[in-house]
Amino acid sequence: MNRIARAWDSDIAWSFRHSPVAVVAAVVSLGMILAAILAPWIAPHDPFNPASLNLMDGFTPPGQPNAFTGNSYLLGTDDQGRDILSTILYGTRISLFVGLSAVLFAMVLGISLGLLAGWKGGWVDSLLMRIADVQLTFPAILIALLIFGVARGFIPPGSREQMAIWVLIISIGLSEWVNYARVVRGAAMVEKNKEYVQAARVIGVHPVRIVARHILPNVMGPVLVIATIGLALAIIAEATLSFLGVGVPATQPSLGTMIRIGQKFLFSGEWWILLFPALTLLALALSVNLLGDWLRDALNPRLR
């Protein structure tokens, strides 16, 4: 049996094939990720090219020709005359980029600190876990806001626009690392007392190597679950921050920015400017979250 056949036959693949929710969620998330990656090629318009924008096209309702120009857009246009569909494609791209980067950052930080705390124990563990406890008493979004605010203070005003997206990633990442650290620490404490780790210690394998080669691969299961659910959380956190106006700059609108812009027009009748980005965000966060839920159940031996 080759690798692909074996993977297809594995328990996890079987559980996936037999879970319609997981399949639909995977198809939706993959479709959106693909669409986001391919945005520059598949988007009907380039919403960031001022030359192609025509203010006269503003507020075109979805599927109807514009009263002045006669141009028609599938999902309508916003106040600047930007095509909503294209903006959503580009916005999803930014939301996903920020979400994935933030998760990656939180994962690396959380896993490292979790392994350190779990392996070392003692005061190192106490210190790290007390920090984690304190951080957990505040809502993640508040932490992200705080870090974002502090970080902006250190950046010269000229480069704030370019740096904004990275500051955002770090803020969200720092607000989420605790989840990874706690789970990894718990799993590492269990694994380090197992006999296969003792067998490596008997022959004097270096602790760093034991942690990296023996313990890390055995704690990755639960980490993947948190990472998937964490991605949904990070996307929402990004949207929330952008909605509050502290996220990505308006020149690079993410889904959150679009929702912020759209809500200004909700009561003047231009509902589509808010509705379509909001639905996109909902679909993205929901499908990733459902995928995470399924993964958690599939990896839980007690539920099998």
Binding site: Q198, A199, A200, H214, P217, N218
Partner: peptide, 30 residues
Amino acid sequence: RALRRRFQMIFQDPFASLNPRWRVGEIIAE
């Protein structure tokens, strides 16, 4: 290090004493 090579240990629980993520060959070769 030279001394460690000369003694080894066999454990009680064969379900915990082999790293589940490693191939048997890698385990024995460690």
